[in-house]
Nucleic acid binder design. Structure first.
Length: 490
RNA sequence: GGCCCCAUCGUCUAGCGGUCUAGGACGUCACCCUUUCAAGGUGAAGACACGAGUUCGAGUCUCGUUGGGGUCACCA
């Protein structure tokens, strides 16, 4: 079995594209087949130089390794379509010679004009096939004008084209409603239609998994396979991911927002930068349109591979369920070994301008592990550990509910005195030392521990108080309490 | 508009004629735990779009309606 992912290098990788790649990859791995990366760069106008790097970077990040491709080679190369020009031209000529295709001489402007007029007359837009039956003389006349023709496919004018799609069943199209698609452009490069059939034939692709938006052109591709006399692959048209509001497919053009109005990432790189784990993103993507099969939603992709079946793909489109990604990412973070999580936490911390000491990072990591849903959240929750200068919180943050400055100052002073006498500066010992003070001061745990938390961390939401004290040590703890005392006017 | 695809809780989904008084998950809400925030535990609310058929029996099959999506480029 051979599958492929064939993105065009027109930008970074769309999350929908990543899912298509993931499904193709899982299918190949499931069956011990080959997963191929092919670059569809036949549109020189939309080509973006850096996108190939971004594409491969995102795929590698997601763990989707390919067995053949532009950088790794293979027996079916080249894997970049612009390097396969002659192949397409050869086979376009073959179609012409066998009366399966023809030259059409209209310019893009003329076609555009034709469409506009059709629209104005409320007719369905489309090529009128006026050059399908050109005589040799007529062609010569156009050539003499200096016109460069395109090659168009001669679609059958009658009958139906019925194709079996693995996930949708039998799909039937009336040939009369179909177009004579352009196969080879005036610049000598193929359109997707020709390139898809020629490449998938010569690369011996067995299964084509692509998004449903390709379904309308499936009959054209099918007729092409028939015209060439080649055996078509098995087709599977995947459902698309819709915007969270359910309106239209997820697109970077109109940035989607979640229910709180926050922008939702669309490109693979956005997810990478937002602090999601590749294992969580893969898990998430595999859960859209497919399911593990036993109500399990949290899983590792290697386990999903063992159960992957095209027949179990849901044919319905789905809205982008971003809240589930948050949840899954949190779960994957919690499952990571501490040293592994620490390693992944380093980058966001450093990106925030902090200097990260490895020993300190290893101590802080367990304290944030159950508290963050994305890697980036570590900065807000525990960034203070790595700041060169501690910034004390303002008095109003230190003073807890139903307390005033005087009571707060007293709580701080008494705590400081107790803490000063603690030599074993560990969480349990600290807790035991401070706990009795609540009764003495007439405060609840929440009040007293809250005062200390804000004093020591500088934040109202933070890592746990005594754990934090243990990590920063006795001297620093006492120093911060003194600073807090000053803040509340003690 | 033509053609094509799709339709189960707010969302992602299980369901492939009877075991469905429709299961799970996220989210939401309540309670428990609790030094903040989380995590964890328990529980609650919440869906078969509609209408005809077929059948002893339909969420499951057929048709229609409605709704949503895709596509109609010398882009993929």
């Amino acid at each position: 079995m051979r599958t492929r992912f064939a993105p065009s290098p027109t930008g970074s990788l769309h999350i929908g594209g990543l899912r298509t790649a993931l499904f193709n990859w899982m299918f190949a791995r499931r069956h011990g087949g080959r997963f191929i990366l092919r670059i569809e760069d036949t549109d020189q106008k939309r080509y973006e130089p850096h996108s190939l790097e971004e594409l491969t970077e995102a795929l590698r990040w997601a763990g989707l390794n390919w067995d053949e491709g532009p950088d790794v080679g293979g027996d079916y190369g080249p894997y970049i379509q612009s390097e396969r020009r002659e192949l397409y031209q050869t086979w376009a000529n073959w179609l012409i010679e066998n009366d399966k295709a023809y030259y059409a001489y209209e310019t893009a402007e003329e076609l555009d004009q034709m469409r506009k007029e059709q629209m104005a007359r409320k007719q369905p837009p489309g090529y009128n096939r006026q050059h399908r039956t050109l005589s040799a003389d007529e062609r010569a006349a156009f050539e003499a004008e200096g016109r460069v023709p395109v090659v168009r496919f001669k679609m059958p004018l009658e009958g139906d084209t019925a194709i079996e799609d693995v996930i949708r069943g039998r799909v039937v199209f009336e040939n009369a409603t179909l177009q004579d698609m352009v196969l080879l452009k005036a610049d000598g490069l193929p359109t997707y239609h020709l390139a898809h059939v020629v490449d998938d034939h010569f690369m011996e692709i067995s299964h084509v998994m692509r998004a449903v938006e390709w379904l309308p052109s499936l009959p054209v591709h099918w007729q092409l396979w028939l015209a060439f006399g080649w055996e078509p692959p098995i087709y599977a048209h995947l459902p698309v991911i819709l915007n969270p509001d359910g309106k239209g497919k997820l697109s970077k053009r109109k940035p989607p927002k979640d229910k709180h109005g926050n922008p939702i990432p669309v490109m693979a790189h956005d997810f990478m930068k937002a602090g999601y784990l590749p294992e969580a993103l893969d898990n998430f993507l595999a859960n859209i349109g497919w399911n593990f099969g036993d109500d399990r939603e949290f899983f590792y992709i290697k386990d999903a591979v063992e159960r992957f079946e095209l027949e179990r793909i849901n044919e319905a489109n789905s809205t982008f369920p971003t809240e589930k990604l948050e949840w899954l990412n949190g779960l994957h973070i919690r499952e990571l070994p501490v040293d592994e999580l620490a390693a992944r936490l380093r980058k966001p911390l450093e990106d925030a301008g902090l200097t990260v000491d490895q020993d300190l990072l290893l101590k802080v990591t367990p304290q944030v592990q159950t508290r963050i849903k994305t890697l980036n959240e570590v900065v807000g929750l525990a960034g203070f550990f790595f700041k060169p200068e501690f910034t004390p919180a303002p008095a109003e943050a230190i003073i807890q509910k139903k307390m005033d400055a005087a009571a707060t100052a007293q709580a701080l002073a008494r705590s400081r005195a107790m803490l000063a006498g603690v030599d074993d500066f560990t969480t349990q010992a600290l807790h035991d030392a401070i706990q009795p003070l609540t009764e003495e001061l007439g405060l609840s745990n929440g009040q007293l521990f809250g005062v200390l938390r804000v004093a020591v961390t500088g934040q109202t939401i933070s890592t746990p108080t005594f754990e934090t004290m243990e990590i920063i040590g006795k001297d620093e703890t006492l120093r911060r309490i003194d600073l807090a005392l000053a803040q509340v006017g003690g």
